[in-house]
Amino acid sequence: MTQFKYRRKSRFSPARRIGFSLLASLLLLSAPGASVAQIPSKVTVAYSAVSPIFAGVWMAKEIGAFEKHGLKADLVYISSGSITVQAMVGGNLDMTIAASNAVVSSILRGAPLVAVGSITNRPAMSLFVQPEITRPEQLQGKVLAITRHGSSTHFLTLFLLEKLGLQDKVKIQPMSGTREVDAGFRAGMVAGAVRSMKPGPKGRVLVDLPDLGIPFSMDLIAVKQDFYKNSPKTVEGMLKAYIEGVAALRTRKELAYKVLGKYLLGGGDALDEAYEYAVKYLDRQARVEPAVIQTVLNWENKGETSVNDFFDNMIIDRIIKEGFVEKLYK
């Protein structure tokens, strides 16, 4: 007699059984001791000039500092601080490093931004002029180049002309970007320009702006207020990456020269000048000093406005207190 074995039919379809298996796997991976590879958060960081003042963020990108802090960063060059800030407000940038006057002015006009860092708290530029100019009064009736209206070069040129008693006596010519300013200077189209580096081999320093004792941030590190509120860990990671980049300039000099050559598209003696400039002026801690905000507010005739409406050092102060910066130089 033939015997048949009864096989109980499963109540669940194959698709549902696969679903249960996947759920079980996820529960196992989420258990203590299990590890899941995290996908880095993608961030876009904009800088506003081809200048060694941005060497810190370039180094951060090249040494993998952003990835170290769980971020995949794309660097975007947008000529001029004022344009960079506009792109920040209306676009998809996560962080911008742009002229402090452009950042502060935009916040005054309602832009939802906050400064979370400063790359340097003094005006790291000089007024370079043609070799035949030896005295400030010789600039009267001549042309000085800037990148764009609202840029740091524009702000500092106006500030300097007022200090020299040459306000409204010198023509200011926007040239679009730093490379265009340098080209115009070398061609003799302009008498001079406020620049971080010598715009041409014949250029000479007429005024060194740090000597004026003006508290001024060359560029503030700014983010949108809602991003700062909703993604503080991402902001912290970006700031730590930047600070590591600044440290690497000093501790990895050979690589720093290669990085400067890559982003400045140059070499030779210009790299020596660029490296010395970056090491001299870039602050190790990247902290915003209230006085640099006040300088811009005074210029905008808004000196009574509270500086605390424009920046927040909370994350930077915590990074410093934890000893993060100090450890990078040991």
Rank of each mutant, 00 (worst) to 15 (best):
V57D: 02
M59V: 03
K61F: 04
G64A: 05
G64C: 07
E67W: 00
E67N: 12
K68Y: 00
K68T: 10
G70K: 05
K72H: 11
K72P: 00
L75G: 01
L75N: 03
L75I: 03
Y77N: 09
I78M: 05
I78R: 03
S80T: 15
S80M: 01
G81P: 07
T84S: 12
T84C: 14
Q86C: 00
A87I: 00
V89K: 01
V89P: 01
G90P: 00
G91R: 12
L93S: 05
M95V: 15
A98G: 07
A99Q: 03
S100N: 07
N101R: 09
N101F: 02
V104H: 02
S105M: 09
S106I: 07
I107L: 04
G110S: 11
P112S: 08
L113V: 08
V114M: 09
V116D: 05
V116T: 11
S118C: 13
I119Q: 12
T120H: 08
N121I: 04
N121C: 09
R122Y: 15
P123V: 03
M125K: 13
S126M: 08
S126A: 15
Q130C: 02
Q130V: 13
E132A: 10
E132K: 03
E132G: 02
P136K: 10
E137Q: 14
L139R: 02
L139F: 09
Q140L: 04
Q140R: 15
Q140F: 01
K142A: 01
K142F: 00
L144R: 04
A145N: 09
I146M: 10
H149W: 13
G150D: 13
S152V: 06
T153W: 04
F155M: 07
L156T: 07
T157N: 04
L161G: 06
E162R: 15
E162A: 11
K163N: 12
L164I: 04
L164E: 01
L164G: 04
G165W: 10
Q167E: 15
Q167D: 12
Q167N: 09
D168W: 08
K169L: 14
V170R: 04
V170A: 06
V170F: 10
V170Y: 05
K171W: 05
